[in-house]
Design a protein around this nucleic acid. Structure first.
Lengths: 137, 137
DNA sequence: TATTGTTATACTCTATAACTATA
DNA sequence: TATAGTTATAGAGTATAACAATA
């Protein structure tokens, strides 16, 4: 009975993760996806919107919309680069840094619960395999 | 630099699979997803649309639309069940069976290429982990 | 009344095209 | 002319609500 197609399994694994995360991130102030963006901004400081978009594998128009939401809530700032005023340097605000700090525990709990059905000694290998098949990301 | 969030990795793993499959399934006559539906119809013969939808984890309205496409191309048939004429029994047509047969090699190639970046001795474990985390599917 | 399937509609996510400003 | 960012729009994919047929 079980569907054993990798595409199907990946899709439903992703949907299962999203559903779990959506419930656990409730009330935090940002979705799991938004926190991922904040995290990249934190890790790679000083990137422009376009560079950030490339880093995260999304279109620049999608990036603009995502940043709109984060900026509206005071989590990030956009500052034109003095040497090339076409580029917006994206940075975390104190509120953004604070939220990212509070997210760590939530994410740890989500990942722990999500991976609880995988054999403990297989968890690192599973993560490594995901990294490998997900391309350069 | 690498993003190590499971949600992100799952999403991009899924997108990578879809992109690879889209190119390899070109010209076959059905998408990877549609072949997955044909495959379930083949495996669990005699199911109604609603039962099939539950089996595949989609809404009945989504199922109706997907089956519309498959029926229009002559790959499946819908027959009211004599004992309960509200239910449409879904079955493969000869053309559907034929296409499913031709798909096997394509899917094998896609999965092989997709998993080529995973350590050979980790591939079965990876698939097992995916089955586990993707819930009941 | 409840269920199955259909249709119309709406929502989310994403990208393409056209625009503004800067280079 | 080319690039960064924005905005309007459109296309997938999905679900909710309303409806018809059947139970």
């Amino acid at each position: 009975m079980a569907v054993d197609r990798i595409g199907f399994l990946l899709k439903h694994a992703y949907l299962a993760y999203e559903a779990l995360a959506a419930s656990k991130y409730e009330g935090l102030g940002a979705t799991a996806r938004e926190c991922g963006i904040l995290s990249q901004i934190h890790a790679l400081d000083g990137l422009s919107q376009l560079e950030l978009a490339a880093e995260l594998g999304v279109d620049r128009t999608t990036m603009a919309q995502l940043l709109d939401g984060l900026e509206r809530r005071g989590l990030i700032s956009r500052t034109p680069l003095p040497t090339d005023r076409r580029r917006n340097v994206v940075a975390l605000t104190p509120a953004g840094r604070d939220l990212l700090g509070r997210e760590a525990a939530v994410r740890a709990e989500v990942e722990k619960e999500f991976l609880s059905v995988v054999e403990p000694h297989e968890r690192d290998a599973f993560r490594a395999a995901l990294r490998a098949v997900s391309g350069r990301f």
